[in-house]
C-alpha cells in the first residue's frame, strides 16, 4: 500500500489520514440505461495489477475527495488530484 499521499490541498500525508472508496474509472450510466449497464456499474469490477485510479477521501484533513493514480504492485503514486478537477475544479 502506498504509504505517503500528497494531497493537493494539504501536502504530503500518511495514508492513515485517508479513507479509500475504490475504483475511480467506472462511469455512471444514464438514468434510463438498460439494467445490464447498471449491473455492470454497481457490481462488476476488474481486478487489475499495475496502474490504477482510485477515489480517496482525505477524512482527517481537508475532507475532499481525491483521485489517486497509483501502482498496486510497486506502490508508486503517480498523481493525486481533486475529484472535481475532471469537471473544471471546485465550485
Amino acid at each position: 500500500m502506498a504509504s505517503l499521499i500528497t494531497c493537493p490541498h494539504c501536502g504530503t500525508r500518511p495514508k492513515e489520514e485517508f479513507s479509500i472508496r475504490g475504483d475511480a474509472t467506472p462511469v455512471r450510466p444514464a438514468p434510463m440505461a438498460p439494467d445490464e449497464a447498471w449491473n455492470d456499474y454497481a457490481h462488476v469490477r476488474a481486478n487489475p495489477r499495475g496502474r490504477i485510479r482510485e477515489h480517496w477521501q482525505h477524512v482527517s484533513g481537508c475532507r475532499r475527495w481525491l483521485v489517486v493514480e497509483r501502482d498496486n504492485f510497486t506502490h508508486e503514486v503517480f498523481a493525486v488530484t481533486d475529484a472535481t478537477e475532471s469537471r473544471g475544479g471546485a465550485r
Binding site: 490541498h9 494539504c10 501536502g11 504530503t12 500525508r13 500518511p14 492513515e16 489520514e17 477524512v59 482527517s60 484533513g61 481537508c62 475532507r63
Partner: peptide, 24 residues
Amino acid sequence: IGADLHIDAFPVGRAANVLCNHLS
C-alpha cells in the same frame, strides 16, 4: 503528527487539518 513540520515545508502562516494520533 505525520506531516512534515520543517519551517520550509510548513512555514509561518500555513495551517491545515492534520491527524494527531487518532484526533483530527
